[in-house]
Design a protein around this nucleic acid. Structure first.
Length: 211
DNA sequence: AGGACGATTAACT
DNA sequence: GTTAATCGTCCTC
């Protein structure tokens, strides 16, 4: 387990450096009044300025403001008219950098998580996928921008491995249509909760070599 | 003011 | 493997 000071320093790193270190980290949420904790098994790095797949690529907007703020805060976004997903904001303030929480294992509050995710058939499906993970933790608009290092916060980074774990693999990110070749997705090999890889978000107009 | 589309999921053939 | 659900955000008139 890593203390608050060390976690702060880690969070000041850019997403590409932080992302593999978040594999095995535990995030805990009291949002919704009940505690659920998840150990991360899959994440993705998003680097605003040079990353066409990042929400922040075209600059700061009302939605992406949190991404440009100080590290250690939660960036929640709403997508497809249905789902919320969550990121850990990192890097230097003023530069958009964040790590999308894609999957994990519920380590506490599995009963609560199952109530929130009635479609889950197995424990490993509870937080298998970014919107599923956010649902398990009860995350939404109300948690956007919360400080993950503040003990009084409803969502906290409870622990981070002190070293990069063995068995982490890297590959292309899921569900994006640009910069699809960058191996900025990290996951724990063998973890059943790692989400399925799906290339592209929509129909590809032309399978060009663009990246 | 209007429209295209999404860092997805669940259900269905 | 395919597709509906569903709406905020952002880009283009």
């Amino acid at each position: 387990m890593t203390g608050t000071v060390a976690a702060r320093e880690l969070l000041a790193r850019p997403a590409l450096s932080l992302a593999p270190r978040l594999i095995g980290a535990v995030i805990v949420s009291d949002a919704g009044g009940e505690e659920v904790a998840i150990r991360l098994t899959e994440v993705e790095a998003y680097e605003g300025a040079d990353d066409p797949a990042s929400h922040a690529f075209r600059g700061r907007t009302e939605r992406t403001g949190v991404m440009f703020g100080p590290p250690g805060h939660l960036y929640c976004y709403f997508t497809y008219g249905l789902h919320w997903c969550a990121n850990v904001v990192c890097g230097v303030e003023g530069v958009a950098s964040a790590v999308l929480l894609r999957a994990g294992d519920v380590v506490r509050g599995a009963d609560i998580a199952l109530e929130r995710r009635p479609a889950a058939r197995r424990g490993t499906d509870l937080a298998r996928g970014p919107a599923r993970l956010a649902t398990c933790l009860g995350l939404g608009a109300a948690q956007n921008g919360v400080d993950l290092c503040d003990p009084a916060s409803p969502v906290r980074l409870e622990s981070v491995p002190s070293r990069r774990r063995p068995g982490i693999e890297a590959g292309p990110r899921v569900g994006i249509v640009s910069a699809t070749q960058r191996p900025w997705r990290f996951w724990l090999a063998d973890a059943p909760s790692v989400s399925a890889f799906k290339p592209g978000g929509r129909k590809r107009a032309a399978p060009g070599p663009a990246d």
